[in-house]
Design a protein around this nucleic acid. Structure first.
Length: 287
DNA sequence: AGTTAAACCTGGTTGC
DNA sequence: TGCAACCAGGTTTAAC
């Protein structure tokens, strides 16, 4: 479920409700991708600050005092939803001593005075990692190598094109790697390439300035629209309050292999790229 | 160095 | 109905 739009929608659903909340207890379920990296009890008494997003990661800063200022220099939790993760914010908070048992697939829970935040993740590809700072290890290492945010003004058309010029891999693969621009996973990479009319097999280096411009615009438009619509709910994605997304109703190619192209009617094709399924229109998308 | 495969997990769907 | 095979929104790690 979680590409950039789903992570951003999740961020927005927990940021204000939890800002300033005091941690009362931390519960761990089965192991996630990495260990938490600190004794769970050491977080008790800390206060949550504004929740940030970087790529598909969420950063939950933790302050010693209730009203702290900036967020980057404090300790906190770096959270990733992996392939099947979702957060749920439950109010009221699970009472101390009561209902300690974690639900099925609940592998992390932060009880605060403003509600219980829990991570549900059946496949456990997700992660919750404590870090002494966003720029300190291990957070810095996990975020190192990430490309620019889609809405970063520094990501100009010229720079985007120049970065593509340096990579010979298929454009779909380059988008998934997230070293040029973050946020597009399998769904939105397929959708943006369709919107831009670019064949997913086309080498990134062979994309000219005009098509690079179209692709950047398509990525920004696709991701922004998905955020507005609450993300894509294929099976069970929802924000932390349980609200489902609606972008699946806008999908033009993802999951539609064999069906007619919405633009020209040609049968959409499926292929494998870097172990992931790509769907595209052989007529609308050119090399 | 740069690209591709295997690995991490569970659950739903498909097909015999 | 049972069961094996295959598929899935991501990323790291190991192997060519």
């Amino acid at each position: 479920m979680p590409e950039l739009p789903e992570v951003e929608v999740t961020r927005r659903s927990i940021d204000l409700p939890l800002r300033g909340a005091r941690v009362q207890a931390v519960h761990l379920g089965k192991p996630l991708r990495w260990p938490l990296g600190c004794p769970p009890g050491s977080l008790v008494g800390q206060y949550l600050g504004a929740v940030l997003r970087r790529g598909k990661y969420l950063w939950l800063p933790l302050h010693e005092r209730a009203s702290a200022g900036l967020t980057g220099s404090t300790q906190g939790l770096l959270l990733h939803l992996g392939m099947s993760g979702a957060l749920e914010l439950r109010t009221p908070t699970v009472p101390p001593g009561g209902d300690l048992a974690l639900a099925r697939h609940e592998h992390f829970r932060l009880d605060t005075d403003r509600g219980s935040l829990r991570l549900l993740d059946p496949r456990r590809f997700g992660a919750v990692v404590w870090s002494p700072g966003l720029a300190a290890e291990p957070a810095a290492g996990l975020l190192a190598g990430l490309g620019l945010e889609p809405d970063d003004p520094a990501l100009t058309e010229a720079r985007f094109h120049a970065e593509l010029q340096r990579r010979r891999a298929p454009i779909k693969t380059v988008l998934l790697q997230g070293e040029v621009i973050v946020g597009a996973g399998n769904i939105y990479a397929c959708e943006a390439l369709f919107q831009a009319g670019i064949d997913p097999r086309c080498s990134a280096a062979r994309i000219g300035p005009v098509r690079a411009r179209r692709l950047l615009h398509a990525l920004r438009h696709t991701l922004a629209q998905a955020v507005e619509l609450g993300g894509t709910t294929l099976r069970d994605f929802h924000d932390a309050r349980g609200v489902h997304g609606a972008y699946q109703e806008q999908v033009a190619v993802y999951g539609r292999a064999g069906l007619p192209c919405v633009r020209c009617g040609t049968r959409l094709r499926r292929l494998q790229q870097a172990q992931r399924t790509t769907v595209y229109c052989p007529r609308c998308q050119r090399r």
